[in-house]
Design a protein around this nucleic acid. Sequence first.
DNA 1: AACTCGGGGGG
DNA 2: CCCCCAGAGTT
Length: 375
Amino acid sequence: MPDSDSIPQKSLIDFENDPCRFQKKLLGWSHKNPRPMPWKGEKDSYKIWVSEIILQQTRVNQGWQYFERFVKAFPTVEALASADEMQVLKYWEGLGYYSRARNLHAAARQIVHDFDGHFPETFHDLKTLKGVGDYTAAAIASFAFNKPHAVLDGNVYRILSRIFGIETIIDLPKARSEFQNLASRLLDEHNPGAFNQAMMDFGAICCTPAKPVCTECPFNDTCRARLENKVSELPKRLEKRARKTRFFFYVKISQHGFSYVCKRESKDIWKGLYEFPVLELENAEDFKLEKLESAFFKQKLPKGARWGEISSEFTQLLTHQKVLARFVELHLPPEIPVGFTKESALKKCIKVSESDLTKKIPLPKLIIGFLQKKI
DNA sequence: AACTCGGGGGG
DNA sequence: CCCCCAGAGTT
């Protein structure tokens, strides 16, 4: 372990005053390590925008099928703006972070109305779009319009924290400005798109979160984390919080080939998606029909209604919570209308055919899992 | 500044 | 299991 005096300070900070040297190493690496992607070389700002939104907190492998389907269904900003939200969400089904889809849709309408259908080109204007923050605005500005804005994403945090040995906890707001300033200083202003692309490719392929390939890294001679044996400790993050478990008891109503679903409106998970009438329970011991009967029907089941079996457990892991669900079918005779109860949980339901349920209604993965297992 | 929004792939 | 991913919005 070399003491810190033996580390050549000058060569480490030298990148900040000599960004060209950083750029040369990075772009040299990029040239030797091409990373083909479906949207690379894309000039259509609309498609660049869509790809950036889809890729937020999402791996390329997970997102690219969605991207291709999405731009095929909505080839232009006008097409997206004139679609309805349920249709847009259906194309997002299974991808997660559904506010991205709702914001994308709303922003398409912003572009048509506020920008007269002309895609905004400046960082400032881009940021007025819903769902477009610092990262996405910089990405679109640089990729589509060759404007000098450095992107700051998870890759960039990781790369810079290691090369410069920055121990600031990256979840903290002050880290954002610190890293943004550094990234902006290093940016190749004559080639911002290529620089940003190279940074992210480098982070995805070489300076990876676990087991980075330092032997092939162009910065391995001066990387502070490597010299100090801290590669696995950087970047520094906040401790994770514990995950809470929630219990959802779903009622799948079956009535001559139709079901009832309601839209999740509250400020909670899966906003905008649809689900069966649900009773949220306090604990796993409450999965009992009496609970449903008292909550939904005030103890009195409609005439002719018949319960099915309570399903096994279905679970869905989210970042901050775990959802544990059971389903039970309620067979209803055709003549009983949905307004059979005064319960608000059922009042807002819409009646859908089994085929619309899977083809048109955007559903959480949890529900899809139940539907597939049932068949 | 803290929290929340999904889901998947890899160690 | 745990980590984290081409982040953003809300409180």
